[in-house]
């Protein structure tokens, strides 16, 4: 499933989608960035409420497919612009991390 398809199914709001045709598989949920760097896998959908500039580097280094900001969290322009430049996909949603994760689970059934 591509990031575009996943985002459409979950009705996510795009913030920066420079590489929407990337494949996504699996989910990681976490806000402590070093924890995410230790555990998230390539192609994961990373759900977080952390929104500072460092999420772009962490997403890029871990090679996750996209970042989904839960509970209506959004980012400032600098984060959005950096994500566009670095090829990092970011969406936001009003749903909680739990609601997003269960929706993703039902998509892949």
């Amino acid at each position: 499933m591509t990031v575009y398809e996943m985002a459409k199914q979950l009705e996510l709001t795009p913030i920066a989608v420079p590489e929407g045709d990337r494949n996504c598989a699996g989910v990681y949920i976490g806000d402590l960035l070093s924890w995410v760097m230790g555990r998230a896998k390539s192609e994961n959908v990373w759900i977080t409420i952390m929104s500072n500039i460092k999420i772009v580097a962490v997403a890029s280094l871990t090679d996750v497919a996209c970042v989904v900001l839960a509970e209506g969290v959004t980012v400032d322009d600098r984060v959005r612009e950096t994500a566009e430049q670095k090829g990092v996909n970011i969406y936001t949603s009003e749903k909680t991390a739990y609601e997003l994760a269960t929706a993703l689970a039902s998509l892949t059934k």
Partner: peptide, 11 residues
């Protein structure tokens, strides 16, 4: 900012 979890060196 999401750091300082004591995971840096272990990672």
């Amino acid at each position: 900012l999401g750091f300082g979890a004591g995971m840096g060196l272990p990672n």
